[in-house]
């Protein structure tokens, strides 16, 4: 219906409208929780499919947590606090080069500190709360968002962190954080492409389009988050090494120098 109205207009005018819309859209992206697929953005079949895809990971995570909680009642409380921390972390404002404001995902820090299986469950609750109290993401798109941000992201982060330990702690942390963000962003672009293939170029064309459009915000964001995560990790190493050792994140013997940006806390 709208399309037919548009068809009756001269093409230049349509072009103007589209360009104006584009500018408008970019102007709107001030607070970019850009990787949350919004409520209602996926057609019902895809919404359901991503829920199904996520269930095994979720149950795996929940079972792992349940085992831990059965061993010590304190760990339930600690998990709750860790989840709350993850939520607040993702609400911090990341200084950005372009002047617009963005937020860290906190995926890698969470995955390294709490473990990727735990992060599936905590991340799911974080995304649920973000959908309800912030209108970031959505309930219908929860499955898809959990898949990219609470499954793929944490596992990529954790895998990269383990695989890159040889390069030194700072690099392992940086790569874990940056690659987790990129993995999340690529998966999200893929999810959107699968749901909305282009008329002529199909899924591939759509994928390239989404990848391209989100790269504007996501590539610098991932780098910034990588640096941020290294800073956080170094501070934790300096001030509470024993906390990290206790949780098996680093081993006691390795006296690794905290390379990268360091700072003295007040």
């Amino acid at each position: 219906m709208i399309a037919s109205i548009a068809h009756s207009m001269p093409k230049q005018r349509v072009a103007m409208i589209v360009i104006a819309g584009l500018l408008l859209a970019f102007g709107t992206v001030r607070s970019a929780h850009a990787m949350h697929i919004s409520e209602g953005f996926l057609p019902p079949t895809w919404a359901v499919l991503w829920f199904i895809a996520v269930i095994p990971f979720f149950l795996w995570g929940l079972r792992a947590i349940a085992k831990q909680v059965n061993r010590s009642p304190q760990s339930k409380i600690t998990l709750g606090m860790s989840g709350a921390y993850s939520f607040v972390l993702s609400g911090l404002k990341l200084p950005s080069v372009t002047g617009s404001c963005s937020h860290p995902t906190g995926i890698a820090l969470g995955a390294i500190l709490f473990g990727p299986t735990t992060m599936v469950v905590l991340g799911t609750i974080v995304l649920l709360f973000q959908a309800i109290v912030l209108a970031h993401g959505g309930l219908t798109t929860l499955g898809a968002n959990v898949f990219s941000m609470a499954v793929i992201g944490p596992f990529v982060a954790y895998g990269v962190f383990k695989a890159c330990r040889g390069f030194g702690l700072a690099w392992a942390v940086f790569l874990a954080a940056a690659l987790a963000d990129w993995a999340t962003y690529i998966v999200t672009a893929g999810q959107l492409a699968l749901a909305w293939p282009a008329a002529t170029g199909g899924i591939l064309e759509s994928f390239i389009k989404f990848l391209g459009i989100f790269s504007i915000t996501q590539i610098p964001l991932a780098v910034a988050e990588g640096i941020l995560t290294v800073i956080v990790f170094n501070l934790l190493l300096q001030h509470s090494r024993e906390v990290l050792v206790e949780q098996g994140i680093i081993s006691d013997e390795s006296p690794e120098p905290a390379t990268g940006p360091t700072a003295a806390t007040s």
Binding site: T78, S82, A84, K93, P95, P104, V232, L235, L236, P261
Partner: peptide
């Protein structure tokens, strides 16, 4: 500095969250 400050905030908050956990427990 902003990045450094956010990092400090995040690190401190993590430690606080863990002490909160034991206090709540």
């Amino acid at each position: 500095r902003s990045l450094q400050s956010v990092g400090m905030l995040a690190a401190n908050l993590y430690l606080r969250s863990q002490t909160r956990a034991s206090a709540l427990f």
